[in-house]
Design a protein around this nucleic acid. Structure first.
Lengths: 179, 179
DNA sequence: ACCGTATGAATGAAAG
DNA sequence: CTTTCATTCATACGGT
């Protein structure tokens, strides 16, 4: 990790006095992506980009700076996190699916199937990516809007498999026999 | 931004909804642990469990589902938050202690030291925690043996420069023509 | 009904 | 890449 990152922010840490983070209203402390930035990054991601090279990061960052403050490392981290969480999520889902299959296995098969393979995309490195400003004008009204605001209902890729049938057996043995 | 936006919650099981929340037409309620669940989680935490492994999370989740709907991610988040907030609290206390230390003598230094470098509890990181012996056989494995001695005191002085808010010129050519 | 607090959920940033 | 830490957003609740 250090390899590719070195030139991004190693130098940035503690550059200067910073002057108490007055921050003119914006909570500066960490990058707060605008919706446009997130949108673009997401598109890139869904286009197959997973681990952008230094140059790619630079370009992306550069372009995204149009929508608001951003640094290369933000882009780098974004991809790291996004990729990692996609994996993590899939992993957990798989586990849940497996477990639930052992107990349910009704027509949830189809869903499980979709779940299991929805993200199995062939990790290809994109060569030329054209998606872009084609419509990036549509919604550039928010400058520093937090992306959450209205889509809190993002799915949770981990489900529960509410049993609910055995609500009458004795409480589990909670004795932790450690040590 | 989510890549795997999936909205299928295990067949039939109507997730969330309800939860009142009239004001902001929310649709997906969030997990609301039952007292039983909280009790169990708290006990586990008190026993020293801080960062359960995926397997442990699964087991715990599975067991707790007896008391009500729950997903593995809920357990995951619960521990994350609980740990973080305990730490947060401790940090605040430490601050206060340190502040008062300025007027106390050497004696208290030792105490402060202990407070700083010792977890609230004997920090007996569980090594073999047999969660719910009922159905967790020899799978107890844990590699959370490390004790944080280094608290990266991240200097939140951020460095990025602001790129002036010029949101009113045409979008840059974002074609990423990688070489 | 509003407001403050506790806490579930998310994610940027790092460390390992 | 994986896992953890820190911070923030959002919401359920209880008090006044």
């Amino acid at each position: 990790m250090e390899e590719g990152m070195s030139e991004f922010f190693i130098s940035g840490v503690s550059v200067g006095g910073n002057s108490g983070s007055a921050t003119t209203g914006t909570k500066c402390g960490r990058w707060n992506p605008t919706t446009e930035q997130v949108k673009v990054l997401t598109e890139l991601f869904s286009s197959g980009l997973r681990t952008p090279s230094t140059d790619q990061i630079q370009k992306i960052s550069n372009q995204l700076s149009f929508y608001g403050k951003i640094e290369s490392k933000n882009v780098f981290y974004w991809f790291q996190n996004h990729k990692a969480r996609e994996r993590q999520k899939r992993r957990k889902v798989d586990k849940d699916v497996i477990r639930s299959e052992n107990s349910i296995s009704i027509n949830s098969f189809t869903q499980n199937f979709n779940q299991l393979y929805q993200v199995s995309e062939p990790e290809r490195v994109i060569e030329t990516l054209q998606l872009f400003p084609l419509n990036s004008f549509g919604e550039s009204e928010s400058k520093n809007m937090r992306v959450h605001a209205s889509d809190q209902c993002r799915d949770s890729t981990m489900f529960s498999y509410t049993v609910g049938e055995q609500m009458d057996h004795p409480p589990l043995d909670l004795r932790l026999s450690f040590m």
